[in-house]
Structures are given as C-alpha cells and as structure tokens.
C-alpha cells in the first residue's frame, strides 16, 4: 500500500509504569502504521499492553518515549485547543457502557455535546434532525430514548448510543476498546455490524482492541498480536488466522473454543 495512505503511525512507542524495582514496561518499543479506511485489530491477553497502547493513541496517556504521527505530522497534545482538535479526529468507544455515561444527564445531552464539540452552530431544528439521523443509523428510536436516563437502557442500547455519537462526530479514527465484551452474543452481532457500516458509509479507520481472536478475524483487515508489550506478529487477518507463525499466536488460537475442531482441555 502506498505510504501516503498512512493516517496514524507510531515509532518506538514505549510506556513505562513505576520506576526502580517495580518498573513495568507496558508498551515496549512498538512501531505501527495504520492506513486510512482500514480496520486494524490489536489482540492480546489481559496485561499484554493493548489497552495502554490504545490510551496512548487516544492521548489519554503520555508515552514515555517514542513518537506518534497523525496525518504525517507529529501529534501535539500540549494545549487544550490542540487536544480538542485531535479529538475531533480520534474518538473512542470503551468496554463498559455503564460507566461511559454520566448518569445524571439524559441521553439527549450526550448527543448535544457532540454538536458542541464539532463546533458547528446549528438551529434547534437542525440539531434535532441530526440527532434523529444518528439514532436511525443505529436502529434506535429517537422519540423513545432522548428523554431517558442511562440506567433505563440496556447494555446493548447504551453501546449503540455510543456508536450514534461516533456517527454524529464522524471522526477519522475510531478506537474501539473491547466494545462487545460486556454485552451478550445477540447484541454483539448488531454492534459489530454497525462498526462495519460506519466504515462503509464514512470511510472510518477503526482500531479494534480485543482478546477474542475470532472477533478480530471476523471484523478486521489487519491484525497485530501483542504479547508483553510487544507486537509479536502482524499482518493480514486471513494469513494470521490460517497460518500463524509466532508461538504466542498459535497458543492464542489454540485457546479459543472452536465449533468444528476438538478443543484440547487436557
């Protein structure tokens, strides 16, 4: 793929927690490149540093050393204005929908805040029609939900509201940190389909973080396998699943229960 397609890249990104004896290298000298319009999965077990990497990409954590390039330029996150500008382009969906919401605010306010963040000055009617459109995108009914509080929604619905928020903001990059691990299988399929739809409709780049190799295979073009802070294997999703090279990848694939193959539980 051509180089000018790269939207986000990192060079020697390292993050160290603690110091001295208790030093933990959560992300160790990671290089990565993410192309525009791609779905990239970062797969690894708990403690492999995948969430830390996501938080660095999102700018919630500062890397200890290394450099992140966004759109070919060095990312700057020093002033509020720079951060705001960055977050117009990079947005996230987190694992726990129940803690993504402010429980004192109605659902409507979540979406109204998006209008504020995107910096548009719209009339009331325009805002409502925009919110309605966003709700329609995720198959929710605006009339039923706008006046409700988060606790009145199910986990799947909350996660869909989060996606409708993404649809309103239309960021270039979406970071999805295990968006389906807290909801059940039936809603999971819906959420995944919506992420795919986002990619198709607004050509979004998605960084999908998961511990489930099956999910990442279903969804993504490219997979990064992370172990102990390092990316140990990367490449095309089909290649990695059908022909894993690194022992850790083989072990991960082995640990997932499959339908048609025997699962060695010995």
């Amino acid at each position: 793929m051509a180089d000018n397609n790269v939207i986000l890249s990192g060079k020697n990104v390292t993050r160290i927690f603690g110091y001295g004896k208790k030093k933990v290298i959560a992300v160790n000298n990671v290089d990565f490149e993410i192309n525009k319009g791609e779905i990239v999965s970062i797969v690894g077990e708990s403690g492999s540093g995948k969430t830390t990497l996501a938080r660095i990409i999102l700018g919630l954590l500062k890397q200890t050393s290394g450099e992140l390039l966004f759109d070919g330029k060095r990312r700057k996150m020093n002033s509020y204005k720079e951060r705001l500008n960055y977050w117009k382009n990079v947005q996230a969906i987190f694992q726990d929908p129940f803690s993504s919401f402010n429980q004192f605010h109605k659902i409507e306010r979540v979406l109204r805040d998006c209008v504020g963040l995107s910096g548009l000055s719209l009339t009331e009617a325009e805002i409502v029609s925009k919110m309605r459109e966003a709700f329609e995108f995720v198959n929710l009914k605006y009339e039923e939900l706008y006046n409700k509080y988060p606790f009145e929604l199910s986990g799947g619905q909350m996660q869909r509201v989060m996606i409708s928020r993404i649809f309103m903001l239309k960021p270039n990059i979406l970071i999805a940190d295990e968006p389906t691990s807290m909801i059940d299988v039936c809603s999971r399929a819906t959420i995944l389909d919506m992420l795919m739809k986002l990619r198709v409709e607004i050509n979004m780049t998605i960084v999908f973080i998961t511990h489930d190799v099956g999910l990442s295979y279903y969804l993504s073009d490219k997979i990064f396998i992370m172990e102990k802070g390092k990316i140990v294997e990367r490449g095309n999703a089909v290649d990695i699943i059908t022909n894993p090279q690194h022992p850790y990848t083989i072990q991960l694939l082995d640990d997932v229960p499959k339908l048609h193959e025997a699962w060695n539980l010995g």
């Binding site: 299988v185 039936c186 999971r188 399929a189 489930d212 190799v213 099956g214 999910l215 295979y217 279903y218 999703a237 089909v238 699943i241 059908t242 694939l253 997932v256 229960p257 499959k258 339908l259 048609h260 193959e261």
Partner: peptide, 10 residues
C-alpha cells in the same frame, strides 16, 4: 451469532 476463528466465518 456465533463467531469463531475458523476459515469460512469471514
């Protein structure tokens, strides 16, 4: 709604 990392799932 099952997803497993097997060949034809994609």
């Amino acid at each position: 709604a099952i997803i497993v990392p097997e060949k034809d799932i994609k």
